Simulated scan of single mutants.
Amino acid sequence: MEKSLLKRAKTLEPMHPNKSTGLFGGKSSGILNWNDIAYPHWYKMYKRLVGNYWQADEVNMASDIKQFSTLSKSEQEAYLKIIGLLSTLDAPQTRTALLLSLYATDPSVQSIMAVIAQQEAVHNESYSYVLSSVVSLDEQNNTFQLGRTDQVLLNRNEQLMEQYNAFVEEPTVENILKTMVYTALLEGMFFYSGFAFFYHLARHNKMVGTSTMISYINRDELEHGRFIAELFRATLSENPHLNTSEFTDWVYKHFKHSVELEIEWSSYVLAEVDGMDMEEMKGYIKYRANKMLRMMGLSEIYSENVDNPMKWIRAYVDEFDGTKTDFFEQKSRQYAKTSDLNGFDDL
């Protein structure tokens, strides 16, 4: 397999064409003309991404502030541990998106990755925001330590961490592809048992502000996952020498292992939560893995999990192939922007 190290893309090289000759390791002037790019439909993806703009402190957390203390102990523990999980994934994702853009020789990829990085930063801020609304500063800080101290969480994140760091240390096309595999897993599967927990609470009229925030994050991640899957396929197509049975086996192996770790984590954090069906959750995790594999141009590996076993989740988040919902019009979600006239002043 290819072991030659990539160089970071030059900022401007006017003697090269505006339309890139390759996603990584190609030639481009660095000038972005959206009407003259190698993959024209990516402009629509860019527009969808920037159309999702939102800020954490626009979400009204007043009811959640009152409700958190009424949750069961298992619900409170799951709430904090899942926030801890999400924060350990989104903060590195900001950096990884920026690193991918540094090596991309297609300026459209650089721009799309810049938007993704910004959104991941907003996601990470949102976890600080929701925690500051419901627990003390000491509890907030303890929650953000979980990614460093909780052994189950450390085990779950170990291979993702190894691959992300391998890309930093050895920036080859192969490591970029492998990093995109883990990014697809992160955007399309790793988050989803956590998302499901918050939607489960909202389904029972609990912590609706938090679930609204999660809906926004989830909507962003759907778009991120879609673009990463496309970038993976395009990069593999441009580097056919890497499109081998050995590499495909690597992808399937790491998908299966990641599903096992996600199921272990879900059982650890959700098993005691009243009303959570863990068999249904296992099926949902496998369904999400199948979906990401299909998007990446690969075959499903869980033949019994082609359909979503948790269809009720559709009420809370957009589907890839569904009708886009205007979140400002979702009255049943009780969405409200905070201002000087609402939010914390309601207390």
Rank of each mutant, 00 (worst) to 15 (best):
N35G: 15
V208P: 03
F320T: 12
P40G: 12
E319S: 10
R294N: 13
Y43S: 04
D64R: 03
I176G: 10
Q163P: 00
G25H: 11
K47C: 05
V122P: 03
S132F: 03
M292S: 12
A289W: 11
N290Q: 02
K253D: 15
Y79C: 06
L347V: 01
V317D: 03
M207I: 01
T88G: 08
D277H: 03
N308D: 15
S4Q: 13
M180L: 08
I37S: 06
M161N: 15
S101M: 12
Y182I: 02
N218A: 14
E246M: 11
H16M: 14
K311Y: 10
Y192R: 06
Y79N: 04
Y43M: 09
Y302L: 05
K66W: 02
N243T: 07
V152I: 15
L185C: 13
K10P: 03
S136R: 05
Q151H: 13
Q151G: 05
V269W: 05
L154K: 14
V109D: 00
N52G: 11
D346C: 10
Q159D: 15
S128M: 02
N175C: 08
A166C: 03
L261W: 09
T248I: 10
M61T: 06
H200Q: 05
V181P: 07
N157C: 11
F190H: 11
S111Y: 09
M1I: 08
H241W: 09
L347G: 06
D220L: 03
L146N: 00
I285S: 04
E223D: 14
S237L: 13
R288H: 08
D346F: 06
I313D: 01
V259Y: 03
I82F: 00
S211C: 04
F167M: 10
S267K: 15
S303V: 07
Y199Q: 06
D345P: 00
M1N: 15
M180P: 10
D277Y: 09
K206H: 10
P92N: 05
S29A: 12
V168K: 12
F191D: 00
T179L: 05
E75T: 04
N155W: 08
S132P: 04
F247S: 09
L137P: 08
Y182C: 01
A91Q: 05
G147Y: 02
R314Y: 14
Y46F: 11
L131N: 06
K324V: 11
V152L: 14
T338L: 00
L32V: 07
S237H: 11
K311T: 12
Y252N: 08
L153T: 05
G84Y: 04
M278W: 07
V115T: 12
G322S: 09
M281A: 06
V173T: 11
P40T: 10
T338F: 04
I263K: 06
I263F: 00
S28V: 06
E280I: 01
A62C: 03
F167G: 04
T210V: 07
